[in-house]
């Protein structure tokens, strides 16, 4: 057993704990664990720049995506439409506070906080203003990884459209376009963020 080896020259698989020497990766390459097949480490192409612009676009799109009506129905001459925010307000009105809170968290709060967080981290890298507090910030950022459900909500929109098509006149509003773009931006911002690189840089700067 060689325990004298520096821990920065080793990595372990997050899923099965197998130990490897740290691979030297070029941009766009990734290393896979030979035992369980999950990704050990990857270097994403142009991570900071791409994530910065995607999250900036996402932040700007979040306002229309939340406030503009997604779709509307017409029945016997009456018209009514609703936005993402209206969904939450309608649930509160009907007394389903818990569901309203969870829908608010999963489709509104978590995605926005993740976009703002990605924007803050990448902008501090881009403009070279790294602070030690980023270590804590980035660690807290990872708690939100599992809880953004914009893609599920998108499928929900499609399903409810089919449900409404049957006996009402359905109209699609600008909010749907904004929501789809918002979904794309937040997915791209999250997937282009290179965590290994950010952690490595922060460690080199602040941990001795």
């Amino acid at each position: 057993m060689n325990t004298t080896k520096d821990t920065s020259q080793l990595i372990a698989c997050l899923q099965c704990d197998a130990l490897y020497d740290t691979p030297i990766l070029k941009q766009g390459q990734s290393a896979k664990c030979i035992r369980c097949g999950s990704i050990l480490a990857e270097r994403k192409v142009d991570s900071i720049e791409r994530s910065f612009y995607w999250s900036l676009a996402g932040i700007m799109l979040s306002v229309p995506a939340i406030l503009l009506p997604i779709m509307g129905v017409t029945l016997v001459g009456q018209y009514h439409h609703a936005s993402l925010l209206d969904c939450i307000l309608a649930l509160i009105e009907h007394g389903f506070i818990m569901i309203a809170t969870l829908v608010f968290l999963f489709t509104l709060a978590v995605p926005i906080v993740r976009l703002l967080g990605a924007f803050y981290i990448t902008s501090s890298f881009k403009f070279n203003r790294l602070k030690p507090s980023l270590l804590h910030f980035f660690r807290a950022f990872h708690h939100l990884d599992n809880w953004a459900m914009l893609n599920v909500f998108m499928l929900g929109i499609v399903v409810s459209m089919y449900k409404l098509l049957d006996d009402t006149e359905l109209s699609v509003n600008m909010g749907l376009l904004a929501f789809i773009l918002w979904l794309i931006c937040s997915t791209m911002a999250a997937s282009s963020l290179d965590q290994d690189y950010i952690w490595q840089e922060l460690e080199n700067k602040f941990v001795d």
Binding site: I70, M71, G72, V73, L75, V76, Q78, H80, H81, A82, D86, C87, I88, L89, A90, L91, H94, I99, L102, V103, F106, T107, M149, V152, F153, L155, G156, I157, V159, S160, K163, L164, T168
Partner: peptide
Amino acid sequence: MLDVFVVALLVAVVELG
């Protein structure tokens, strides 16, 4: 969560008095 979101959308959209 799909079903929950569908219900949330329907509650908000189908509100014709």
